[in-house]
Write a protein that binds this DNA or RNA. Structure first.
Lengths: 127, 127
DNA sequence: ATATGTACCGTATGTGCTAATGGTACAACT
DNA sequence: AGTTGTACCATTAGCACATACGGTACATAT
C-alpha cells in the first residue's frame, strides 16, 4: 500500500499516518496478519523521524489495529477491522461537546475553559 | 474603598480587579446598592486601559456581583455576597476533571484529547 | 454638554505548548 | 551481524493564545 505524508498540512504527521493505516484496514487493503513496514524503514521512506512513526504505531497498537510481535516486526491485528469502528475519537468528541456546551450555556468564557482544561490535563498527567 | 493594581504581578490585571472587588463584597466594605466607579474613571485612576477594567466588570456582571444600570452607572448586585461563594471556576474544574479522567482511563492520549478539545471549542464558538 | 455602558475595528508582546527533530542505548529476535 | 521495538536524554521551530493597548462610535441617561 501507499503511505504518504503532507508536511504542509496542519494535521500532525502522526495523525495522518494513523488515519491512513486505519482507512487501509477498513477498505481491505490491509488484512489481519499483513506485515507493516518497520518503524525505521517507514521513517526512511517518508523522510521523517523515527519518533513520529513510532508515535503513530503506538496509537495504533493501543487501538488494537496493529500488533507488534516482539522483535519480529509489526503486523495487522486479527480484530483490526472491528476495532477500527470503535472510534474513541468520536466518543471523546461527543462527551467534550456536551460538557463544553454546558459551560458556555452557563456563561463561562472560552478563555476560562481553556485555562482550566490545560491545568486539569497537566494535573492529571503530572501525577 | 481602595483599589490597586500591581503591573509587575503575574496575575492579570483584570483578575486582580475581580478578586479585589469580590473580597470587598465578602468583607462588607461593599454592600448591595453601593455605586462602583465608572469604567473610564477607574481606568484613569489606575492608569490602565478602559478595556481592562471593562473586562473585569463584564466578568463580575456575569457572576451577578455587580449590576450595570443602563447608563446611570454600575452598582453592587442585591445578591452579591451570596454569589461570591458560587464559584463557576470550581464547577468547571470538577466537571472537566471527571470527564478527562474517564478519557485517560480509556487509554486516550493527551494529544488526542487536546486536539479534539480545541476542535470542539472552535466549532462551538465559530457557529 | 457630559458621562455612562457597550461594541467594533485593529495591533503588539510575551508566554506556553506541540510537534518534530537528533542522538544514543538496550534486549531480543532472524 | 543486522534488524526489530522501545526507552531515555536533549533541542528547536512554529503556532496559538492571553493580555493589554489604542481609537472610534453609538444610544441613552443626567
Amino acid at each position: 500500500m501507499e503511505i504518504t505524508v503532507d508536511i504542509e498540512s496542519t494535521t500532525p504527521m502522526f495523525t495522518q499516518l494513523v488515519m491512513q493505516i486505519k482507512q487501509a484496514v477498513q477498505s481491505g487493503q490491509l488484512v489481519p496478519g499483513d506485515p507493516l513496514p518497520s518503524i525505521r524503514q517507514l521513517a526512511n521512506d517518508l523522510e521523517i523521524n523515527n519518533k513520529t512513526v513510532a508515535k503513530a504505531y503506538r496509537l495504533l497498537e493501543r487501538d488494537a489495529i496493529i500488533q507488534p510481535k516482539g522483535y519480529r516486526g509489526t503486523f495487522v491485528h486479527p480484530d483490526a477491522k472491528d476495532n477500527c469502528s470503535v472510534d474513541l475519537n468520536a466518543w471523546v468528541r461527543k462527551e467534550l461537546t456536551q460538557t463544553i456546551t454546558a459551560f458556555k450555556t452557563a456563561g463561562v468564557t472560552d478563555s476560562e475553559i481553556r485555562i482550566v482544561f490545560a491545568d486539569v490535563l497537566n494535573q492529571l498527567t503530572g501525577v
